[in-house]
Design a protein around this nucleic acid. Structure first.
Lengths: 144, 144
DNA sequence: GAACATTAATTAGAGCTCTAATCCCCTGTC
DNA sequence: GACAGGGGATTAGAGCTCTAATTAATGTTC
């Protein structure tokens, strides 16, 4: 079965192009793509625990831990113990983090708007629907 | 701009589901997804240099070097100097590598066939076309 | 109250990924 | 022959990603 016949190849190609372009766009802000994803969730959900952040970004907790350590070293976030649940750390953007996030978001949103503008409303809905069916099927057949 | 409105999120979701399912399917053969991709190209192009292999798998040369080192340590491939161009290494599957590849390919192809079967011919063509337009746009706007 | 399960956080270890830099060989051109 | 350029291979270093295991706090069940 040649690679060009595999739907997976086309999905991977598009994701690869997406990540490469996002990476290039985020470079001026000094953020990686996963770092930007984490900051975006943090901006919308201040104080969210790292475990919930990991789920929102579709990565595992140790992965998010790695990303947050790098963000913390750069002073973009703070992690403080939750007053009630002492087991939980509240993660928040610093002032610097908010600034860097805003700068990065500008470029990222520009890419997303440009990409969306390549399609009609109907085409966009079709693409989202077809991709959702891919995800649903792939998850349904996953061993475990 | 919420994440659910971003086409990129849906592309990433599908790719994530694809990789996770492929990872699970390849586990019995003891191969990672990138290792399988490299072996698939090697099976179709015996003796291909690592640099060309990297291009075929859409990774950089150092990345492919990492993957090939792991495959070589497991005895699945050999890398021998090219008789004419002593600078080039010919990469080939070993007998064991061919066996492991065949075992892994069975599962991977089953996933691809099942995924393809979720769609009509027209839907499949639409999905491929829409994804290609995403890739083309994203590459066209990438800073460099 | 004691045993159990759940969830958060972290560490260890393997593997993938990139950019930047280096080294080497071959092939042009002069 | 000298020398520059292109392409293949490799190393160094940073970062992301996973699974597996550990530790701690919360909550449930008896």
């Amino acid at each position: 079965m040649p690679a060009s016949e595999r739907l997976g190849s086309h999905i991977k190609d598009a994701e690869h192009a997406l990540t490469a372009t996002k990476h290039a766009v985020l470079k001026p802000a000094g953020l990686t793509v996963p770092q930007y994803a984490a900051l975006l969730q943090l901006a919308e959900n201040p104080g969210i625990p790292a475990a919930a952040l990991a789920r929102a970004c579709r990565v595992t907790a140790p992965t998010m831990n790695t990303i947050l350590n790098n963000l913390q070293q750069r002073g973009l976030i703070t992690r403080t113990p939750h007053p009630w649940h002492r087991n939980v750390l509240e993660t928040r953007l610093t002032e610097l983090g908010t600034q860097v996030m805003a700068e990065a978001d500008e470029g990222a949103v520009r890419v997303e708007r440009g990409l969306a503008a390549e399609f009609t409303d109907e085409e966009r809905a079709q693409l989202i629907s077809l991709l959702a069916r891919c995800s649903a099927y792939l998850e349904s057949v996953r061993p475990d």
